[in-house]
Design a protein around this nucleic acid. Sequence first.
DNA 1: TCAGGGACGATTGCATACAATCACTTCTGT
DNA 2: ACAGAAGTGATTGTATGCAATCGTCCCTGA
Lengths: 270, 270
Amino acid sequence: MPPSPDEPALAAVVPAGAAAGGRPASVQDAIRRDIIAGVLTPGARVTEASLAQRYDVSRVPVREALRGLESEGFIDSRPHVGSRVAPIPVPDADDLFAVRETLEVSTARSAARRAAALYSGDESPEDWWRIRREIAGLLDAGDAHVAAGDLDPLVGINDQIHIAIAELSGSATMTRLLRQLSWKIEWLYAAEVQPRGKRLWPDHRVIVGAIDAGDGERAAALMAAHVRESRIGYLLRYGVTTPSSDPVVAAEVARRRAPEAAPDRPSGRT
Amino acid sequence: MPPSPDEPALAAVVPAGAAAGGRPASVQDAIRRDIIAGVLTPGARVTEASLAQRYDVSRVPVREALRGLESEGFIDSRPHVGSRVAPIPVPDADDLFAVRETLEVSTARSAARRAAALYSGDESPEDWWRIRREIAGLLDAGDAHVAAGDLDPLVGINDQIHIAIAELSGSATMTRLLRQLSWKIEWLYAAEVQPRGKRLWPDHRVIVGAIDAGDGERAAALMAAHVRESRIGYLLRYGVTTPSSDPVVAAEVARRRAPEAAPDRPSGRT
DNA sequence: TCAGGGACGATTGCATACAATCACTTCTGT
DNA sequence: ACAGAAGTGATTGTATGCAATCGTCCCTGA
């Protein structure tokens, strides 16, 4: 049961970052976005003064932003010395995906259970439909981009859908953790050169469908397969040599890597 | 192979929090500690001025601390209005333990693998032995407390051991995530009235032994069983009614709850 | 008696100014 | 020529002061 699509769908793509909100959180978001986007490269020295000038604020909001980014792992800073952009956590990629799998499976299951409770009239949270509409808009926006062959925005939209599903689960704690994790994983993707495939995109509608149906176990299973697939895809494309901590994932990576070089590539090169 | 125990072992218990370090992070740590300890109760209004007076600093460090605590989920704050201590995430308990399980299994495995690489002479990180000594001290300290029947400090020591194992894994990202998770779980325990059992304490030496032996899969399996057991224990003691998202855990909770009321209690009360 | 509007108090958000600390350079002595 | 130490510049850490914003109380009017 899709919600009323009378809201402007594409608008949901923009406000995720919250650019000029006047709050220091926006400075933190802005810096983080620049780090993830590669504008601020790992190892680069960042002084409070330069950031203050760059984002046209005083040093105070910059300081608060830097502290937050430090606790998120994007900034390494030493007292009285200064701050640097942290290295991209490529060695942690497999583990990050593993944690994400656990998190998202939980949130998908909870979201579906909450949907079931909603339809049976047990509770009617006001946020539900707003988030549900936002997801509908994101799905449509992603479809449009896929149809247009413009795959770059898909990474961000993808993350927003997953976070919105977490919000649907009603757990602020899980949503917060997942958001942090998504930033890290987005950063990982930024370190990669090859474009991401669009093969996994249709999964989202199926997962949201399971949530709408209130089928917790199905939503969980679908989400598990979805995240696992993206994990395998990342490990394959990035050419991570150390085997995954998950035996199933490791085996699948090995299997796909072994027989023919690259199915996508025209001429296989051993 | 236990490391040289010539260092002051008990000293490792104290500096984990880092009380008066002069840095704003210490203010953040102090406030978080008070929240977890229950000094600042959930829902309590906290103004920057009152906190500044309480910790004898200016409003600026307090502001930075509040921002950090907000992104960690300990503080809910609204712009221009104020901040409150967030509610204890009891509904997320099962999920938090699930994520912790994934995280810790990964860190234990990585730590053991790194130990194996260390013994084969591939690399010799300088931090390794320092952390390994710290763990040894924590294990001894915990043993002493257990022998003395003083179980209260065990919760903190327990967390420190798990975090130290994460540090042993060499992944700053995983360590950071786990630290955040540990704070949350410690907070959950603070909401509980019954004392924690000491039954799981001996597990730690076995896990560390597997790490020392460089046996990654054994360390991972042991850690999985250990965290799962603490998860079951929490769900049982706290009387969480909704079944765990993990079928195995849910079944075990149901099984132990069904037959006799409470094996620990002298006179079972249905 | 109750609804609506305006003013006040309190608190946050921000910018500026100053003190403390560290890294680097340069100077001196052997 | 080289080692060590003091000075200097830059950057962070903190305090104070002011402006913007929100919640609340009270006042006015019907």
